[in-house]
């Protein structure tokens, strides 16, 4: 671990005001903002392996201290989230010094991750592990016929207790008012929520934004396969529009620009 931190220190030297890290203290993982003048502390820190919605904290820090320069370690999914959020002006990448972190094999498998590496970052620590070929759950769902699919989702969403954990942990959710709490769309107090509102609504909003970090699924107390649902929609975005959220800083979701005739010709 310490060599990762050493590397981070080296790279960020003189370029940052503080580090934001998830550290382990007394067996508990916590995010910590370490100012540069307390940098020596880093040497005594133990990095946590826990996946943590760090990006949301970056957003908050940048909102409060827009000029603060922050150094952080990012996994592939976190880097994608930062890229995607910067397209929505929620993150200022210029103020961040990023060191990538390749995910270990066990993390890759646990997350069923397709892209476990922060591609495009100059400095990455750790060995690149290949992502999985395909999300097995999604393959299974795709094999169902249309009425079975609905039944499958219905049986999953029946377990929902409407804790909003999926939304709260999502790095891409930054709306000040959430469609899931709009009484015109989702009946307030109805548990479980009836189809197609709630989950399908959220899924639509995630398409072309979701970076497939899977925190939603990890945090879901009902074990609903949300990552596979959002992944299925991202696949549509890729097939139809060639867009993969978080993969390229210069491309934008087709839903946030009008485009030229050539962008829609294949759709008519």
């Amino acid at each position: 671990m310490s060599d990762i931190l050493q590397k981070l220190k080296e790279i960020a030297d003189g370029k940052v005001d503080a580090f934001l890290l998830v550290v382990q203290e007394d067996g508990v993982s916590l995010p910590q903002l370490i100012p540069i003048d307390e940098m020596d502390q880093i040497d005594h820190k133990e990095l946590s392996d826990l996946r943590y919605p760090l990006v949301k904290i970056v957003e908050e820090i940048q909102e409060r201290f827009p000029n603060a320069r922050i150094g952080l370690l990012v996994r592939g999914c976190e880097y994608r989230a930062l890229i995607e959020l910067s397209k929505y002006s929620q993150i200022n990448l210029d103020k961040l010094v990023l060191v990538g972190r390749a995910c270990e094999r066990n993390t890759v498998e646990k997350c069923a991750c397709l892209y476990p590496y922060p591609y495009g970052l100059e400095n990455v620590v750790g060995e690149e592990n290949p992502g999985i070929e395909a999300d097995p759950k999604l393959v299974e769902i795709e094999g169902l016929d249309v009425s079975e699919k609905l039944r499958y989702w219905a049986s999953q969403f029946e377990k929902c207790i409407k804790c909003y954990g999926c939304r709260n942990i999502c790095p891409l959710c930054y709306c000040k008012e959430c469609s899931l709490e709009n009484p015109g769309l989702v009946v307030p107090g109805e548990v479980p929520p009836t189809l197609p509102a709630f989950h399908f609504l959220r899924a639509l909003d995630m398409a072309g934004r979701c970076v497939e970090c899977g925190l939603c699924e990890e945090v879901c107390p009902a074990g609903i396969p949300l990552r596979s649902l959002y992944r299925a929609l991202n696949k549509i975005m890729e097939d139809q529009f060639g867009y993969k959220p978080g993969h390229n800083l210069d491309e934008r979701s087709p839903f946030i620009f009008l485009g030229e005739t050539s962008d829609v010709e294949h759709l008519i």
């Binding site: 249309v146 009425s147 699919k149 197609p196 899924a203 639509l204 929609l233 139809q240």
Partner: peptide, 13 residues
């Protein structure tokens, strides 16, 4: 175009 495919994922024709 997206929504039609999304409906298919959801299990709606």
């Amino acid at each position: 175009r997206f929504l039609k495919e999304a409906l298919n994922v959801f299990g709606i024709e």
